[in-house]
Nucleic acid binder design. Structure first.
Length: 503
DNA sequence: TAAGATTGTC
């Protein structure tokens, strides 16, 4: 019964039966453990999983490969890398599933580098990677925007004849999109003989992330015609696509169709999408009303989205309300403080801004440093704010100044709002505050031959000044510049950006 | 009778 409920993904019934076993004093065996551990993994019940782990040791099942594989997956997927390796390393015989447990678990818990490390290790030993292995590895490479590694994995996939496996193809569509090459995604999509709901979701999301809302909506309409059934993930893609291109009414219609036409109950993330849709378009009072009337408690994402829009549209009152709720729910998250402080900065309320920074300091919250990187000649070059660590730092800063002058000649004015307050600006050396994406773009222009598009990755969101600056630079240098920030892609060309300044 | 996969809001 336990196994059957587990296979049906009926987690609560699995837990109920396991507890009943305990109460009745029945001893779990080599079939019980893998099943209940899988249930723990799927529901993120790390604490219960750990307790079961001690039971495994006590009853001597820690030599069973099925039990250990289930433990490896549990720890890897809960982001407990050390514990996952500990169980894995203690196993006498490891099969392909043991390796996959690490790779897929690390990939799903956001430890992408770790996932690729294990994948590369696996290729040095005598275990053949399976379709499962490649699916997870491709996904990890995509999330890191590791084009090089992605292409290597793709060659391995092709060599083994796995290239028409639908799950791998789906992962490849996403990987290409995340590496900035939507045309490769499209090619893969078109050549797939068989498509499922995930295939359509991957393509819709790819267009959405690249700011092509119309293509995303087209694909959604085609998905419905094709017979694939839209799910919760589909609507995240469709709603964000509408949001990014300002299709407010269409977005609302799609949101309402979730329940009416597709029998889907919207989740917190869908409410956050609608808040984004309304507030990004400047309809802040409608957004506020929508949040107040939500049938479920607004989650941090809802407030964060609202706060971001309040910064763009300079609505301090609503912004403060959103910030208060956000900081109550997530007092540890540095991004929330940065948003609030930016809001005060754009409205030039330096005192409040400084109070926010002070609050951060008192609570021991530190901002994640901004970092941009770019690949040139098989090497990754990374930059922090104002750093002069690069071997070519002098040339980069010299060329940056030239670019700034040329940009200023055609109308670029630097916007200091997100950087410093007035007093600080007078005192400090402004070159200390050059954002990392400016350094990366400047370096790329110095190093890459004409005609090659520049692809910069950034761990945080690009700020409005850098966004504006890159538009000017794309015009001056006559280059295509693609910036992948933490949330989406910006394609800059001839002074314009694909996001239409709407991000 | 047991273990591993793809798509996701700022």
């Amino acid at each position: 019964m336990l196994v059957a409920y587990g296979q049906l993904d009926d987690l609560s019934q699995s837990f109920r039966l396991f507890k009943e076993m305990q109460v009745k004093g029945l001893v779990p065996n080599q079939f019980t453990y893998p099943s209940i551990l899988r249930t723990c993994t799927l529901s993120g019940a790390l604490y219960l999983g750990e307790q079961i782990h001690t039971l495994v040791m006590k009853t001597g099942f820690h030599f069973n490969v099925y039990v250990c594989n289930a433990l490896v997956s549990l720890y890897a997927r809960c982001g407990k890398t050390q514990e996952a390796y500990l169980v894995f390393n203690n196993m006498d015989t490891k099969d392909s599933i043991s390796w996959n447990g690490l790779i897929s678990g690390f990939s799903q818990s956001g430890h992408y580098e770790e996932a690729l490390n294990v994948f590369n290790q696996m290729n040095k030993v005598e275990v053949e990677p399976s379709v499962f292995t490649f699916t997870s590895a491709v996904s990890a490479a995509g999330n890191l925007a590791e084009v090089k590694q992605g292409k290597l994995i793709q060659a391995m996939i092709f060599k083994r004849g796995f290239d028409s496996e639908i799950e791998i193809s789906n992962a490849l569509i996403t990987m290409y999109a995340k590496c900035g090459s939507i045309s490769d995604s499209k090619r893969k999509f078109l050549e797939m003989a068989e498509k499922n709901d995930v295939t359509w979701n991957a393509m819709i999301t790819a267009y959405s992330q690249h700011g092509d809302g119309l293509q995303a909506v087209n694909h959604f309409e085609n998905m419905k015609k094709s017979g694939s059934v839209p799910n919760h993930v589909t609507f995240i893609g469709v709603l964000t696509a509408c949001s990014h291109v300002g299709l407010v009414n269409e977005g609302i219609c799609y949101f309402e169709s979730m329940k009416k036409e597709h029998g889907l109950v919207p989740k917190p993330e869908h409410y956050a999408c609608v808040v984004d849709l309304l507030s990004r378009a400047g309809l802040l009072s409608r957004a506020r009303k929508f949040v107040e009337e939500m049938p479920i408690k607004p989650d941090p994402m809802v407030w964060r989205t609202l706060l971001s829009s309040c910064i763009v549209h300079k609505n301090i009152e609503l912004g403060e309300l959103a910030a208060k709720n956000l900081l109550d729910l997530e007092p540890e998250d540095s991004a929330s403080y940065v948003l609030l402080s930016n809001m005060y900065a754009v409205s030039r309320r330096w005192n409040y801004r400084d109070q926010t920074r002070e609050m951060m300091k008192n609570r021991g919250v530190r901002k994640e440093p901004g970092r941009s990187w770019i690949e040139v000649m098989n090497k990754i070059h990374a930059f922090f704010v104002g750093d002069k660590l690069h071997p070519l730092a002098d040339e980069i800063y010299e060329y940056l100044e030239e670019l700034n002058n040329r940009a200023a000649d055609i109308g670029y004015v630097q916007d200091h709002n997100s950087l410093l307050n007035e007093t600080e600006m007078e005192q400090k050396d402004p070159t200390l505050y050059v954002h990392s994406e400016k350094l990366a773009v400047t370096f790329a222009l110095l190093s890459l031959p004409d005609g090659i598009p520049i692809r910069v990755m950034k761990n945080l969101r690009v700020c409005s000044d850098c966004h504006n600056w890159i538009k000017f630079i794309s015009r001056i240098s006559n280059r295509e510049i693609v910036v992948r920030d933490a949330y989406r892609f910006h394609h800059f060309e001839n002074g314009n950006c694909s996001c239409k300044d709407f991000w």
